[in-house]
């Protein structure tokens, strides 16, 4: 029996899936570690980073364990690249209704799956969605996009905003740095998601490895929809690339220059103090959203200068899912001890 969640399509008769999360039981695919989460913490949506969805909102960040990729530079390799069976003592068992209640208790506007690949835990996420929907809490995720059409459909039903990693633009890059043979399913799924969800795309740039592919990526995004935000991450050498050189910021920024004529929302960050995290109006070039970056998972909203998602200088609409919300808008919990 083949697993149908990711494009590896693992033969479950051989045991378990590559990610370690699925096995065959009585002719059905069984999620081995249901409702097991590695974290549940409130954070800014900009830290994920989503820059064009519910700006200023408080997200409950969740994740599980295991992944269908083996990125050589994975920042969360100690969770994502491990066999989930070995991580059960660090996980939390939280039923879906309790997880949603936790988001509410902590005043979160939305729930975002981060850390590892959501496709490896889709059955659990479907259950969370059921309760989140009742509470009017939208869900988003980061995904590597290497998933089957069936899983893409499932994810599109769970998540209303999706951040897809497009880590390079060649089979060769994906083969060497990620461990999969083909990029094609990822490109296919970006197009599918862009028709059903809010989409942002992230590409880590490794100097002299995939920086020459940046313009190709920009052109691909442009041909789908030019208002898709594109985050170019300076590689943070981690995991199996700890000894690698940090990409030069000025040179990488220069390499992005030609792409800027194709896409209005390009961000270059993942390093502390980045100057390329503000949103400029595509019409007049004025700063309409100011952000502050502390590097990996440390971005925040600084000022939202586009009421009703519109530039106050020229009236151009700024592409956005939802609009500015206040950090404490949803905090309704009465923190009174009953003791």
């Amino acid at each position: 029996m083949k697993c149908h969640f990711c494009e590896r399509r693992c033969d479950l008769a051989d045991g378990r899936s590559f990610c370690g999360n699925f096995a065959e039981e009585n002719g059905k695919i069984k999620e081995r570690w249901p409702d097991q989460w590695c974290t549940y913490s409130p954070s800014r949506i900009e830290s994920v980073p989503f820059y064009h969805a519910y700006p200023g909102s408080r997200s409950m960040i969740i994740g599980t364990a295991g992944c269908n990729f083996r990125c050589r530079y994975c920042s969360y390799g100690f969770i994502a690249c491990k066999d989930p069976a070995q991580l059960q003592d660090v996980m939390y068992t939280i039923a879906p209704e309790k997880l949603v209640a936790m988001a509410k208790k902590m005043g979160c506007h939305n729930i975002v799956f981060n850390v590892n690949e959501p496709a490896v835990s889709l059955p659990s996420l479907q259950r969370v969605k059921k309760y989140a929907e009742k509470q009017d809490i939208p869900m988003g995720c980061l995904t590597n996009g290497y998933i089957t059409p069936e899983a893409t459909q499932m994810m599109a039903e769970i998540f209303s905003f999706v951040h897809i990693g497009l880590k390079g633009f060649s089979d060769a890059f994906y083969k060497e740095f990620v461990g999969i043979p083909h990029i094609a399913p990822i490109l296919r799924n970006i197009e599918t998601f862009s028709r059903t969800c809010h989409v942002e795309i992230a590409s880590p740039v490794i100097e002299d490895v995939n920086d020459h592919e940046l313009f190709d990526i920009a052109r691909f995004i442009h041909d789908i929809r030019q208002d898709i935000p594109w985050h170019v991450f300076r590689l943070l050498p981690e995991h199996n690339m700890k000894q690698s050189v940090y990409p030069n910021i000025d040179r990488m920024n220069q390499a992005l220059e030609t792409s800027r004529s194709l896409l209005p929302y390009i961000y270059f960050h993942n390093f502390v103090g980045s100057r390329w995290v503000n949103t400029l109006c595509p019409g007049c070039g004025e700063v309409v959203i100011k952000r502050f970056s502390l590097g990996c998972s440390g971005d925040r909203l600084d000022a939202f200068l586009a009421p009703d998602n519109t530039c106050t200088c020229c009236g151009t609409a700024i592409s956005m899912l939802g609009t500015r919300v206040g950090w404490n808008d949803k905090q309704t919990t009465v923190w009174e001890s009953v003791i």
Binding site: P42, R44, G56, R58, M106, G107, V272, F292, L294, R300, L301, D302, A303, W327, N328, Q331, W335
Partner: peptide
């Protein structure tokens, strides 16, 4: 401390 209920958008000393 329930730090997340204090954490507003424009905080001081972000570094």
């Amino acid at each position: 401390y329930r730090f997340f209920d204090k954490d507003a958008d424009a905080i001081k000393f972000p570094f």
